Amino acid sequence: MKKLLQIVLISSLSLLCFSCYYDEIPEGLDTVITDDDVPEIPDTQVVSFSTEIQPILNQCTGCHAANINPDLREGNSYNALVPTYVTADDADNSRFYKYLPGKGHHDVGITLSVDEIALIKAWINQGAKDN
């Protein structure tokens, strides 16, 4: 019985130590985008939620669908984000902006580009309108 317990214990520890999903961090997921990297979009360029932001969010629906909040599927995303995760006119204090893939949400399989992050930031700072 002792021998069997030892084998089970050693096997369990081996699995625990050597069963990491990633041997290395996939390329691009170790990049941290800072606010200095994000270009400013002029206030005169109106950012549309339906035509510019939703296509970006569609990249995230593999995880953020009905089972993981916020639900970012088309038709649900705006109400799921505003006002719970998005503080209109204040991207820097919006939970959503702080944890975008590439900024604070890592190892999720995607990283948004600086241009995509800039669009989201501008949309929030322009009042996070459902347009």
Rank of each mutant, 00 (worst) to 15 (best):
V82Q: 03
I120H: 00
L81G: 03
D71N: 15
D37M: 14
G109P: 04
D92V: 15
P42S: 15
I68P: 04
A128D: 07
V86Q: 01
T84F: 13
E116I: 03
N58H: 04
A66L: 14
N69K: 09
Y97D: 01
D71T: 06
T31G: 00
V46A: 11
P39F: 02
I120Q: 00
V32E: 12
G75I: 01
T84L: 14
D35G: 10
I33R: 01
N58A: 10
I110A: 07
P55Y: 03
C63I: 13
Y97K: 00
A128C: 12
S94T: 03
S12I: 14
Y22G: 07
S77M: 06
N67K: 12
V46D: 05
G109N: 05
A122Y: 02
S77G: 15
F96A: 10
G75K: 04
G28H: 04
I120V: 14
G104M: 09
R95F: 14
I110L: 15
I110S: 06
P101C: 05
E24N: 09
C20N: 11
T111F: 04
G28W: 05
A128I: 06
A88G: 09
L112P: 00
D35I: 12
K98L: 15
N131C: 08
N58F: 06
R95Y: 13
A128N: 06
S50N: 14
C17H: 07
S48H: 05
H106V: 06
C63Y: 05
K2H: 09
I68K: 10
L5D: 08
I110P: 06
I117E: 02
N67P: 02
G127P: 05
V32Q: 09
Y78N: 05
A122C: 08
H105Q: 08
A91L: 08
C63H: 09
G102C: 02
I41Y: 03
D107N: 15
P39T: 01
D36Q: 14
D89L: 10
T31F: 03
Y99D: 11
M1Y: 07
Y22I: 03
T87N: 14
Q59N: 12
N131V: 07
D35F: 11
A65Y: 01
L57M: 15
E52D: 03
Q6Y: 12
E116L: 05
N69I: 14
Y99C: 05
I10A: 13
V38R: 00
K103F: 02
S94G: 09
P39R: 02
T61H: 06
Y78D: 04
N79F: 11
G104A: 09
V108A: 06
P42L: 06
G28R: 07
L112M: 08
Y97S: 01
V46S: 11
C63T: 13
I68D: 12
K103G: 02
M1F: 05
G75V: 01
G104D: 05
E40K: 15
L16E: 06
V32W: 07
Y99F: 15
A91D: 02
K3I: 15
D89N: 15
N125I: 00
R73F: 03
S19A: 07
I25G: 07
T51W: 02
Q126I: 09
N131W: 01
V82M: 08
L81W: 04
L100M: 04
L5Y: 08
H106Y: 09
L119T: 06
P83D: 10
C17Y: 14
V114I: 15
S11C: 13
C20A: 13
Y78H: 08
C60V: 03
V114E: 12
